[in-house]
Amino acid sequence: MTVFIIRRLMQSSLVLLLMSLLVFFGVFAIGDPIEIFIAPDADQAERARAIAALGLDKPIWEQYVMFVANAVAGDLGRSFVFNIPSIELILQRMPATLELAIVAVALSVVLGVPLGMYAGYKPDGAVAKTIMAGSIFGFSLPSFWVGLMLILIFAVELGWLPSTGRGEVGTFLGIQSSIFTFNGLKHLLLPALNLALFNISLVIRLTRAGMRENLPMDYVKFARAKGLSKRRVILVHVLKNILIPIVTVVGLEIGSVIAFAVVTETIFAWPGMGKLIIDSINNLDRPVIVAYLMIVVLMFIVINLVVDILYSILDPRVRLGDMGK
């Protein structure tokens, strides 16, 4: 186990190193770092100071060392637009994105598992067929377009829900979130549903496949023969077995959901870091772009590492297979 974790840690550091090189060369070799890190309206003295601070007069490998040292120290330049350190700006926006992502993942399980179980329990019924057809659309529909249509239907035509912003933010146990106010929840519902759509379809398909695989098994027959009610067999015995693959896949999808929040946040003007990156790309606010890329890549490496380690704890075959190589 320790060997496995050490090996994975080494791999993660390698990826981080590669990503920092990629971002560094993207910024320093392809682009012009003076243009990227120094605001266009800076005067001569400011420019000279910034060039010295970034070490742009030094050889390229020394510049890389300084870039990494600055990044580790949390200094990746100040945003041109907001004039605060870009890392601070991104960390300010992160809670809104995480909130959206967590609610979306929760929605996909809460809606996906029951629908999938029903579709697997009565696979030939009209309801099951409708659910499965719906899941095909969930996979195929471009999510940004679904977001627009949700706004068109629920905000423009029906006027039930607001279409932009995060709404009121409440505080509970020291955590600030829109979940804690009614107004905030109303703002959260459409973006979260939009973001969850793909994963709802995924969970439906996984759950249905799990049901169809588990129902004919001996333990189900045995539990029924023992006199347990159908309800108990399905909701307790079968559900437990279905949940293993679902938990794994949903865990792996958290990262994707955070990445895809870029799209949802842009549509619903949700003030998270995804909207920030798109605004920054459009405003050419390059220090923020660089900081976003570094932070998100770091976040992904950590998520992947944690999921891999958890997976190897849950399923010993993974780590034993890796050791055998």
Binding site: V15, V23, I277, I289, L293
Partner: peptide, 27 residues
């Protein structure tokens, strides 16, 4: 084989949209 497939694994651990954003933001 190990080297190439590790590269594939690492690449696949990042969602498509994130890779696209990184490249297009830089390029």
């Amino acid at each position: 084989d190990t080297f190439l497939m590790r590269t594939v694994d690492i690449k696949l651990s990042f969602p498509a949209i994130l890779i696209a954003l990184i490249l297009l933001a830089l390029l």
